[in-house]
Nucleic acid binder design. Structure first.
Lengths: 229, 229
DNA sequence: TAGTGGTCTAGACCACTCA
DNA sequence: GAGTGGTCTAGACCACTAT
């Protein structure tokens, strides 16, 4: 049975953890490891590249491969659709469209979406329910210049999020996590008391350098986002 | 110049975005794409595997490669050391060790670290300061069975986090993000008013199935965690 | 059972960068 | 200049699974 890149990966991690290759030290060259393990250089290369991806080693041409001194821990989060997130726990999902307006946006939103003051984006306010209980409040602005079809979408049937995912796939974006005290209006929508700490997710997406949408999600108090390191 | 896997990756994304390969549809087999682009199958394979990693396509043997119907958005977060995080903004970093005790842990902590009730883990409470202003409060339990040396570490000089990273490298772990109203004690440590919404990061790490440490970080209100999608 | 992706090999050329 | 990683090729065998 040939040596797999996974085997090499594990072996390298063990040799680092055992102290054989201390933090910051240089490890043997690919060709040497290939000889030692009796496999081809490609296999070593693939294993070490994966470790570099994960931030455990740093590689430089001619400089060789070094064990990362202070490995930057990375966490990968799944950002699922709220419906899947809720149905996955066995609850029933519903959403209620509270507001649907076409109007000028505040400066902050214009800046984020790259709109001129005269533009008229679509503003949506939606409550997502799990078992008829408010789960999250969504406040969203959609750039109607980029996605004009959104004005004809049946947003009371399908949530704006799902409609956009199916219509504008593979956009790029950014996410920001934070915490905030629930404002009176947020508290009312979530049926909680004002001032309660809510988890906030802000998201903005683009398609080919054109802004698509920006939104904030205010989660029910106690909500937690989980990930492995 | 040979075709690079990066070129193939970009080309595939363009063909998906253009609608040539709709959501959920099957795309040509690796060998066909290799013929079409005049490169070897390995190059196609590498490009498609990367896209599968990113969640844009799903691959199955014999089933072929399909464009992902509802791409699960993934965000990758860097979890830097607080010192780097603070110094990166140009502020000066300090930390103050408020509490250092060896004592039995509450049930919740015992469960998380896999301790027996009789075990005596190390409890540490630290404030991390940016320009002499409280930036985050850290409450940490360390499993002295796994890392007995921690009892001799100069934790007033080097923060527990840095000491552990340098001593117990490459442990596995999990992270949980959430929001909470500052309790009176948290508020006092951060010099804020009780009830303010703080961003909370909980982290637990293991080394070879042995728990190392678990901690909660309470950030100054307004703190945000940022990532690209 | 046949077609697909998963992987390894052996060889090659190149770009980078350290000494 | 020389050694390292980055990458592509052409070929091969195998594991899985849809039909």
């Amino acid at each position: 049975m040939p040596i797999t890149h996974q085997f090499i990966r594990d072996a390298v991690i063990k040799r680092i953890q055992s102290g054989e290759w201390p933090l910051g030290s240089q490890i043997p060259a690919e060709s040497d490891l290939a000889t030692e393990y009796g496999c081809s250089r490609s296999t070593i290369n693939r294993a070490l590249q994966q470790l570099a991806d994960e931030g455990l080693v740093v590689r430089k041409r001619k400089g060789g491969t070094r064990v990362c001194q202070a490995p930057v821990r990375q966490a990968r989060f799944q950002i699922p659709m709220l419906r899947e997130q809720i149905e996955h726990t066995g609850s029933t999902y519903q959403h209620r469209l509270l507001t649907r307006e076409i109007k000028a946006a505040p400066d902050e939103i214009c800046g984020r979406l790259g709109l001129r003051a005269a533009d008229q984006p679509l503003y949506l306010e939606t409550v997502h329910l799990a078992d008829e209980t408010p789960f999250a409040l969504e406040r969203r602005w959609v750039n109607t210049g980029t996605v004009p079809d959104v004005l004809n979408a049946p947003l009371d049937t399908i949530s704006a999020n799902e409609w956009l995912i199916n219509t504008v796939p593979f956009s790029t974006g950014e996410v920001v996590f934070g915490a905030a005290n629930a404002s009176p209006s947020v508290a009312a929508a979530l049926d909680i008391s004002a001032g309660a700490a809510v988890f906030v997710v802000s998201r903005t997406t683009w398609l080919n350098h054109q802004s698509v949408t920006t939104l904030k999600l205010y989660y029910q108090p106690g909500y937690q986002l989980f990930s492995e390191l």
